[in-house]
Amino acid sequence: MSDQAHIGHDLAPGDEEQHDVGTRILGYVVGLVLALLLTATSFFIAGTDLVWQPSIPVALIVLAIAQMGVHLVFFLHITTGPDNTNNVLALAFGLLVVFLVVGGTVWIMAHLNANMPPMDQIMPKPM
């Protein structure tokens, strides 16, 4: 098992296609600039009253997701290429679970809270 030889069509997560150093640095620079822009927009939107207030949470979430995407592409070099299939599948499974856990928890807990008396009324006091 040699280290650099790429058998078949597979790439380690985080590895890029063979590029020269200049191109690679450029990739990080682009990523950094995009991320900084998105961050600045997020902070700006959160603090301003120039935009319609109820849209702010949605905008923040969208910006956050966009920025995560930027990180994934420019820093972690996750692409949709065939050499990345396995990496992307694992990521998709992870995201599905994250989505189910967070979404499910929030949904379930909202309903439980709506239907339940506060806990201290139905539990005995400590011994």
Binding site: S2, I7, L11, A12, P13, D15, N86, A90, V97
Partner: peptide, 20 residues
Amino acid sequence: APKRIVTAYGFWVFLLSDIV
């Protein structure tokens, strides 16, 4: 797969679990 891919992939899976 070569060791570099195996190692990084394993770590990738760990990261996903960390994110969960």
